[in-house]
Design a binder for these strands. Structure first.
Lengths: 340, 340
DNA sequence: CCTCATAACTGAAACGATTCATTTGCTGGA
DNA sequence: TCCAGCAAATGAATCGTTTCAGTTATGAGG
C-alpha cells in the first residue's frame, strides 16, 4: 500500500509531472479542464503531497518551531495560540516544543528544529546563554525571543513591560483610594518580580502619602500567599496594609484564602487585592480578582510576524517589541459585581 | 551562507559521502581514525543533517504527531509529557497540535501530519467520526486514540475507566463513614460525567443504607459548583448530604467556596468533598482536596508504545488499553493534615 | 497558406541523505 | 611471489518534488 506519488497522478491524468505540480502550486496557470482532470486523479488515488521531497527541493520548510518554558502555563498557551493563528494566515505551521525548564529538553528541540530546517524559531529561552541561538541565526535560521529581551542586541525579541505592569497595578490601587500598600511576591531574583516591584516603587515615589511595604516570599505559589495572608491577620487595622499587590495570581489566591477563609477580613472592604497574569481562575475566585493582563496572543502573533519578515530578508536589523500590559479591574479592588 | 551538506563534509574529511553516512548511522563500522577525521570535519563546518533528505530516502519520518483537544488542560499536557518521554527513548520526536476543540484545526493538523509522513498519529479526536482516521490507518499511518475508546474496533485506543473512577470516589466516601452522598456535575451528556455517575450508582446500589442524590449542573465550572454549594446552605443538617462527589475538581472548588466562604459549613466535618482529575490546584486549596487521579503520563507513554509497535508491524490487530484511576485522599475527606 | 506570438505542456536536472554492489588496500599463508 | 580473504571505502542510483528551458499546439493577422 505504498502511497501515490506525483508521477502516479500524472500518469492517471494523462499529463506530465510538471503539470500536476502546476495544479498544486499555481492553479491559475492551468486551464480549467486540465485542472479538473488532475484534481480527479488526485482524489482517485488519495494522493498526498510528500512534504519531505517538497522541502528538500525548496531548501526551506513551511514550519516554524516554538519552544516554551512551560506548556501548561496559560501565558504560553496563549502565546502559542497567537502564533498559530498568525502562522496559518501565512500558510505556515507551528510545531510546539515544551522545554519544561529543562536545558536538555530545550537542546533536543533545537536539534530537531535545526535538522528539520524550520523556517525559524520562536523561543522563550531557559538561560541567558544566547550563543547557540546566535549561531542558529548566523546560519540563516531567524530566531525571535519571546517574553525576554535579548541581552545584547543581536536577536529580535517580543516581551512585556513588567515595570509598566507594576505601575498600572499600584496606580489602580491608589485610584480606588488606598494608601498603605503591600507588595507580596518573590524571590526578587526573578526578573519579572523585580520589574513589577520596581514599577510599584516608582508610582509610590510619585505619590506623597502613599506607603509601600515589601513582603518577600520564597516562591510564587498559593501556599506562600496563604502564609502571608495568615500573618497579616494578627496585625491591627492601623498597622496592616489597606491594599495588596501580589506578584502573580497564584499568590493573590493564597492571600484571598488566608484573609477571608482562615481569618475574617473582607476583600476589598478591609484590604483590596490585585494580582498579575489574569489566569482563568481569576474571574472565578470567590471575590473575582483584579489583575494585570499581558497581551499574550499578540505577543505570539507579532513574534511570528517578525520571524517571517526576517526569514524573507535575512539581514533585517533585529527588532525589540515591548508590550504594555492592561488592567483588568474586578471586585477584589472595586467591590463591584460581587457574586452570589 | 548556505548550509554544509554531507558532500562538503566528505570533501573536507577526504572521504566519500558513503563513509560520512556510515559515521553518522553506523559508527561502529568505521575505524577510529576515520571516524575522528569525519567528526572533526562535521564540527568544523557546523554540519547539521538535513532531515527532509533523510526522510525522503527513508520513506518514513522519525516523528509522531499528537493532537489534543485542549493544550492547557493538565490532563493533556501530562499525556503529552508521557508520550514525549517514551518517544525520546525510542529516538523519535513528538510534535504537538492543539485542536482546541475546533474541527477545522483538527483537520489542519491531520493534513500537516499526513504531508509530513509522520510515523503515526496520537489523537484525542473531536467527534465520533472516525472515517478520516480509518483512512489514514488504511494508508499505512498507525493511529491511536487517546482518552476515547474506538467506537468500532478498527483503531487502537488508550483510555481511562471513568466508571471505575466513580466507584473509587464513592467507595472512599463510604469508607470514611458517609451515607448521604450527592453527585454534583453535568451535563450528563458528557460521556465522562455519565460514566462517573454510573460508577457511583453501582457502589450505592451495593451498599444498603447509602443514598445518592444527583444534582446536575449545566457545566463543569467553578461558578456552577459555587451555585450548588450556595443552594445547599439553606438545607437543614438532616436533609443535606454529608458527602459530595464532584464530577471534576473545578466544580469541587466552587463547592468549597460556596460552603465555606459564603456559608460557614466545615469541610470535611459537615460535608466531605471529593473531586476528580487531581489538578495542580487541588493540593493547594484551603482544604486540600481529595480527588481521583488519572494516570495521564502512562496513558501518553503506552499510547506511544502501541503506536510504534503498529508502525513496525502494520497488520497487528488493534488494541484497547483501559487504565484504572487512583484515589488521592486529602483533608477534604479525611480531615488529616489540615494546613495553617 | 504562412508567420509569429502566446498559451499549454513537457521532462530532465536538482535538492541531500542512504544504500549497496563494487572496488581498493592489506595481511597472512602457501 | 602470489593469492585468498577480509576490512575499508567508494560512488552511482534512488526517494518525490519543483523548476525552468525547451517543445508543441493554437489562433490571430497578414
Amino acid at each position: 500500500m505504498s502511497v501515490a506519488s506525483i508521477r502516479d497522478v500524472a500518469a492517471a491524468a494523462g499529463v506530465s509531472v510538471g503539470t500536476v505540480s502546476n495544479v498544486l502550486n499555481r492553479p491559475q496557470s492551468v486551464p480549467e479542464k486540465t485542472f479538473a482532470r488532475v484534481q480527479d486523479a488526485i482524489r482517485e488515488l488519495g494522493y498526498v503531497r510528500n512534504d519531505a521531497a517538497r522541502q528538500l527541493r525548496a531548501g526551506r520548510s513551511t514550519t516554524v518551531g516554538l519552544i516554551v518554558l512551560d506548556a501548561r502555563n496559560p501565558f504560553f498557551t496563549d502565546v502559542a495560540r497567537g502564533s498559530e493563528d498568525e502562522a496559518s494566515s501565512h500558510g505556515v505551521s507551528v510545531i510546539l516544543g515544551n522545554s519544561d525548564e529543562s536545558a536538555t529538553r530545550e537542546a533536543r528541540y533545537l536539534d530537531l528544529f535545526e535538522e528539520q530546517r524550520v523556517r525559524g524559531v520562536l523561543i522563550s529561552p531557559l538561560g541567558e546563554d544566547e550563543e547557540r541561538l546566535q549561531r542558529l541565526r548566523a546560519n540563516g535560521t531567524p530566531v525571535v525571543l519571546v517574553d525576554r529581551s535579548s541581552v545584547d542586541t543581536k536577536l529580535s525579541s517580543v516581551a512585556v513591560d513588567d515595570v509598566a505592569g507594576g505601575r498600572i497595578a499600584v496606580e489602580h490601587l491608589i485610584e480606588v483610594g488606598r494608601r498603605r500598600i503591600a507588595f507580596v511576591g518573590g524571590p526578587v531574583t526573578i526578573r519579572q518580580v523585580s520589574d513589577r516591584l520596581h514599577g510599584a516603587r516608582e508610582v509610590v515615589a510619585e505619590n506623597p502619602g502613599v506607603d509601600l511595604e515589601v513582603i518577600e516570599t520564597t516562591a510564587l505559589t498559593v501556599l506562600e500567599g496563604r502564609r502571608v495572608g495568615h500573618g497579616l491577620l494578627e496585625k491591627s487595622p492601623a498597622e496592616r496594609p489597606d491594599a495588596i499587590f501580589a506578584a502573580n495570581d497564584l499568590v493573590a489566591f493564597g492571600l484571598l484564602q488566608g484573609l477571608m477563609m482562615i481569618g475574617s477580613l473582607k476583600v476589598p472592604q478591609d484590604i483590596a487585592l490585585i494580582g498579575y497574569d489574569d489566569i482563568d481562575f481569576a474571574s472565578a475566585a470567590v471575590v473575582p480578582l483584579s489583575s494585570v493582563r499581558q497581551p499574550s496572543q499578540e505577543i505570539g502573533s507579532s513574534a511570528l510576524r517578525i520571524l517571517l519578515e526576517e526569514a524573507d530578508d535575512a539581514d533585517l536589523p533585529p527588532r525589540r517589541i515591548v508590550f504594555t500590559p492592561e488592567l483588568i479591574a474586578r471586585a477584589s479592588t472595586t467591590g463591584a459585581d460581587h457574586p452570589a
